[in-house]
């Protein structure tokens, strides 16, 4: 069980003005933490810092008391990221994208095949497993990215706007799957601007004006 903590962090891109200042937040195992805010409020910036993609200008990002250094370190500590732009390799099929990620994070090829199939099935993508990413629709690509995030079975799951291109049924299905992840013991952080989706989460951190405010602590 892993806890991810951001402690008094100022977050900025490439030395620019800080997008968020003095952020302190903890994602706890078994919980879904919703990060809400308007477009440009800093949701992706916060998740990037949690994923090790962005080093805080001040403050710390801790995974179980261990300060996060970079993305490789985060991957090692089991921090999984489902990025907003899906982060899929165009030259690979849906299944290959998932398998590569599973193997890259230490899974065996056989395990990768099994987990890929298990992850695609609940998202209704079994039929598209062998299609190249470019041949999938936007929604299918997003579900592929989610499937990959689930297949990795991380201790911390960071989901950045992963329901933006989904219909209501699929959105509901995804939230259930996130819940299942939390139930498995993962600390789930779900960035969304959808109030309904946020309401389904255990806690909610609202970002506005460069600050993080607990809407539901």
């Amino acid at each position: 069980m892993t806890t991810l903590t951001i402690d008094g962090a100022d977050l900025a891109w490439d030395g620019d003005r800080a997008v968020l200042t003095g952020v302190t937040v903890t994602a706890r195992p078994g919980e879904i933490l919703a990060v809400t805010g308007t477009s440009g409020a800093g949701k992706t910036t916060l998740l990037s810092a949690m994923a090790g993609l962005l080093r805080p200008a001040a403050g710390k990002v801790l995974v179980e008391d261990e300060a996060l250094t970079d993305r490789d370190h985060a991957v090692k500590l089991g921090v999984v990221l489902i990025p907003q732009d899906n982060g899929l390799a165009a030259i690979l099929t849906a299944a290959e994208n998932i398998s590569v990620a599973v193997i890259a994070t230490g899974g065996t090829p056989a395990e990768a095949r099994r987990r890929t199939a298990e992850a695609l099935e609940p998202l209704g993508l079994s039929g598209q497993a062998n299609q190249l990413i470019e041949e999938l629709s936007g929604g299918q690509q997003q579900r592929t990215a989610i499937a990959r995030g689930l297949a990795l079975r991380g201790d911390v799951l960071l989901a950045d706007e992963i329901t933006s291109e989904l219909d209501a049924a699929n959105r509901q299905r995804v939230i259930e799957l996130l819940r299942a992840e939390a139930t498995r013991g993962a600390a789930v952080v779900f960035a969304t601007h959808d109030p309904e989706a946020a309401a389904a989460c255990d806690r909610e951190l609202h970002l506005a004006d460069g600050e993080a405010i607990w809407a539901r602590p």
């Binding site: 993305r71 990025p83 390799a89 165009a90 030259i91 590569v100 890259a104 994070t105 990795l152």
Partner: peptide, 15 residues
């Protein structure tokens, strides 16, 4: 774009 995406998902630098 492809390789950076895969790196984010855990692909090692050497690979």
């Amino acid at each position: 774009e492809d390789l950076a995406a895969l790196r984010t998902q855990g692909l090692r630098r050497r690979t």
